[in-house]
Design a protein around this nucleic acid. Structure first.
Lengths: 224, 224
DNA sequence: CCAAATCTTTAAACTGCCTTTAAAAAATAA
DNA sequence: TTATTTTTTAAAGGCAGTTTAAAGATTTGG
C-alpha cells in the first residue's frame, strides 16, 4: 500500500517508516503540515497517517482541506493522550480512524490492514510499468524498448519512486528520503548524481520517458 | 511435512525445530505474530504450530485472519497453563488442536502425526523437482541430467531453500537463517562459500540451472 | 548581469561477492 | 579405540560494481 506519513516527530517517523516498509508498504514521509497537504493533494497515496499536532498547519486543517478538495483517501489520525476529546471532531472532519499516542505498532498495522481491505486499489506487484518501460523491483531489472539493464540498489530505489509517482512531480526531499532514508548522513547532492545516472539508464534502454527537472521543487517522469 | 512454527520463545523454538527436523519435517520458524501471519498467508505449509501469546499480534488473531482469508491449513495452538479458558475461543477460531505448555515433545509429535493423517495434502514431499534437477531431501541426493550426487547437510539445506523458492529472489538473511538458523554463531560469509559449492554441484550434475546473484539482495535459482 | 540550482564528470573509498586455503570439527572406517 | 575421510568453518586476498564527495561547467530565474 502507498502510505503518506505526516508526523513531525522524526524519530517516530523513521521507526514507523521502517516497520511499514517491512510490511511491504511504500512510505512517503513529511514532517510539516503545509508540505504534507501539498503532497496529500497530489492524491498519490492509498492511505494517509496524519498527526494532529504539526508545525505550520495542524492535522485537522490538513484533513479538512483535503476532504473539501474532494479527496477520499482513507486517513488515520494520530493524537496524543489528552487530545482525546478531539476524536469526534476528527472523525467529523473525515478521518477514518483514530489512534492515541503512545500506541503499539501492532494496532496501527491492524488498522492499516483493515482499511487496506476496504480499498480495492491496493495490490502488491513487484513488476512496475510506466510508459514504455517496465521495472522488476525484485530483480532490479529495467526493461525498455531497446534492451534490459540491471540497476544498482540506489538506482533501483530512485526509479521506483518515479514508477510509483503516477506522473506527478516528486519533490527532492521526498525522493531523497526514499532512496537514502530520512536525514541519512549523506550529501544531498548525490541525488543530482543519481538523477544523472538514471537518465543515462533510461536513454540506454531506449525509453522515450523524460526525467524532467522542476526547478526549485524536484523532478517529474514525463511520457513524451 | 512442511511445518510453520510461530513461537516467540526462541529457546523452545529452536528445540522444537531441531526435534521436528529429526522427524523429517521441513520447519520454518518465526518469532513474531505479524510476520507469522504473513508467512501463514503464503499458504506454503501443511501445518502451523501457533503460540497464543506473541509479540505484535496474538495467536488467536493470527488464526482468525488466516481462516477468514480462506486457509484451511491445520493449526495446533500452544497455550500456557492459565490461558486454558481460551481453549474454546481458540477452537472456535479454527484451531484443530490445543496443547498446554509445558508439554512433552512426544505428545506434540503424536498430534502432528494425527493431523498429518487427516490432511490429504501431505504426500511425500521429500522429493523436490525444479527445472532439470530433482532433489531427494531425505537422502540428500541431487540428480541432474548427467548424474547424481550426494550432498552434505548444509549443501542440502541450501538447495532446499531454492527448490522451494518458486523462482523468487531469496534474500541472503532468509537463506542464512534456513541453513544455519536464526542468529547462528557462524560467520555469514559461509553462505558465500556454500553458494560456491552448490554452483559446482549443479554444474557437476549437468544442470542448466543458474544460481544467479542479485547484488545487494540475495540469489535466485533461474531456469535458463 | 548575478546567484542559486542543477548538471556532469571523476577519482577514491567502500561494499559485496567470489574463490581458495587451511584448520577445526564431525562422521566414518579400520 | 585410533586413523582416515568428509564436512564445516574462518580467514584472507582479490576484484568488480557501487556509492560517495568534490569540483567545475552549465542553466535558470530574477
Amino acid at each position: 500500500m502507498r502510505i503518506l506519513l505526516i508526523e513531525d516527530d522524526k524519530k517516530l517517523c523513521e521507526l514507523l517508516q521502517f516497520q511499514l516498509k517491512k510490511e511491504n508498504h511504500y512510505v512517503d514521509i513529511c514532517h510539516d503540515g503545509r508540505d504534507g497537504l501539498d503532497i496529500f493533494l497530489q492524491n498519490g497515496h492509498d492511505l494517509v497517517i496524519l498527526d494532529r499536532m504539526l508545525p505550520t498547519m495542524n492535522g485537522l486543517y490538513v484533513l479538512k482541506k483535503a476532504r473539501s478538495a474532494g479527496l477520499d483517501t482513507p486517513v488515520i489520525m494520530l493524537t496524543a493522550i489528552g487530545e482525546l476529546y478531539d476524536r469526534i471532531e476528527g472523525l467529523d472532519c473525515g478521518a477514518d480512524d483514530y489512534i492515541t499516542k503512545p500506541f503499539e505498532f501492532e494496532e496501527l498495522s491492524a488498522r492499516i490492514r483493515s482499511l487496506g481491505r476496504r480499498s480495492k486499489k491496493y495490490e502488491d506487484d513487484s513488476i512496475l510499468q510506466y510508459g514504455d518501460i517496465t521495472y522488476d523491483s525484485a530483480l532490479r531489472i529495467l526493461n525498455g524498448p531497446k534492451c534490459g539493464l540491471q540497476l544498482s540498489v540506489r538506482e533501483g530505489l530512485l526509479l521506483e519512486v518515479f514508477m510509483r509517482s503516477d506522473g506527478k512531480v516528486m519533490r527532492r526531499m521526498v525522493i531523497f528520503s526514499h532512496v537514502w532514508g530520512v536525514d541519512a548522513p549523506v550529501e544531498e547532492s548525490n541525488l543530482d548524481t543519481y538523477i544523472h545516472f538514471l537518465r543515462k539508464r533510461l536513454c540506454y534502454v531506449g525509453s522515450r520517458l523524460n526525467l524532467k527537472t522542476v526547478r526549485g521543487t524536484g523532478y517529474i517522469l514525463e511520457d513524451i
